[in-house]
Design a protein around this nucleic acid. Structure first.
Lengths: 231, 231
DNA sequence: CTAATCTGTGTCCATCGGACGCAATTATGA
DNA sequence: TCATAATTGCGTCCGATGGACACAGATTAG
């Protein structure tokens, strides 16, 4: 149940006796990520990862205590560290946080299987913490408290993830979207507002900017809060 | 892979020949929900549900095509229909949407296992659609387009879900929270802003209002958009 | 050179979702 | 009344999963 800290946050161990390790933790994680990227998270079983590395399943357990620790490593490594900040003068908090949100969305969007792993209780990894650090840096100087700053970041990253979650609904074959419009049409009398909204949304063309819409709304709301503080 | 529509959106079948069904779809779903509520979603296996009902595992497949359909039913039924609107004069969009968001949060919070099911591609259920209908009704009269109204609801419900997701991290035994603060303390030099923010957040006492904070920010942002439209 | 230690892995297990077919049960048509 | 068609419950079997455990071989420390 409990996840081993020492894997996400490695200390040193350096055993010296015994045979040389034939594998590497990094190689295992990389192989698992490769499988998840191409064949989905479910395909990244211990057996499959071991096959990919030409090893047996049980040998992996010399490097990873269990599956959940492996997936935790996959998540943190796949999201990666935040991009290096521009060397030029640092932008204001709004443009910085906007870029922060868009980039997080891009990361999750690149590997939708990470969403499934980001649900529920888990130990935060170094990359994830680096993202928080970066976001907090952007909010420094604003009149928000530390707790409020954390809430802001949770709000924005939650939005980014939520958008990816909804996008993956439409993505595979559009079959779910078609099915949904069929349901809505059939029950238009039960859900008149939904029918009207979807009809209007379809007329006005495909909307791809739900991410920006929500981000702008949230940032507007933060702007409002900051304004009331500074005045 | 594909989820059967006809279970979430039942048509009639009414077979008359053959033995009387000993079970009911409702009973199966209810039993599965009960198990998930008390022992977690993973415990709600077909075998376990069958045991709960005094039936065999395979007999359940006469009522449910597969596990994914069962979980879809569990999700929609557990969330339930939106509460009946107050008979008094309908409130303005802001108070209505605020209550909408908080109630959605409460539903998810009651059964955190629903979060796991609400991830990824899925067929929308009648209750979920009823929630959307209710939210759209609250937004009628605002100068927002249909697509924008849908985006607003996705933004708010996404926030509510995101908050529950983070709360479940702290909930079980606080072990994760303690672990996290330990990690942050150890790496305070690598993540100075995070360390400062968490220290400040701890000093100012436990924050339980991340839900309201985010909801208010979002609603402020929508308010801003509406204001620019009406002027 | 011996003993301690570490790696790789072969074997076994419980559990999971599910395919398939068979026996029992019920309603329908002749 | 009786055969037939349809429908249910269920026993059996399967592949795949994560993981426990023990043992052989490799490697180094004393």
């Amino acid at each position: 149940m409990a996840i081993d800290r020492t894997l996400l946050w490695p200390s040193q161990s350096i055993p010296k006796r015994g045979p040389k390790p034939r594998m590497t933790l990094e190689r295992i994680v990389a192989a698992a990520i490769g499988i998840a990227d191409t064949e989905g998270l479910a395909a990244a079983s211990m057996q499959r990862v071991a096959d990919e590395l030409g090893a047996t399943k049980m040998s992996l357990y010399r490097y990873v205590p269990g599956k959940s620790e492996l997936t935790a490593l996959m998540l943190d490594k796949r999201l990666g560290a935040p991009p290096a900040p521009a060397t030029a003068a640092q932008p204001d908090w709004r443009t910085a946080l906007s870029a922060w949100t868009i980039e997080i969305h891009r990361r999750f969007s690149e590997a939708p299987w990470t969403l499934e792993l980001a649900v529920g209780a888990r130990v935060i990894g170094p990359n994830e913490l680096a993202w928080t650090e970066r976001g907090l840096a952007a909010l420094t100087g604003t009149p928000l408290t530390g707790a409020e700053q954390l809430d802001v970041l949770a709000l924005l990253s939650g939005h980014a993830r939520s958008i990816v979650q909804q996008q993956t609904i439409v993505e595979p074959e559009h079959v779910t979207a078609v099915l949904m419009s069929g349901i809505i049409e059939e029950h238009a009398t039960r859900f008149p507002y939904v029918a009207a909204a979807y009809a209007s949304a379809s007329v006005s063309g495909v909307r791809d900017d739900a991410l920006h819409f929500g981000t702008d709304r949230i940032l507007d709301g933060i702007q409002t809060l900051i304004s009331t503080r500074t005045n």
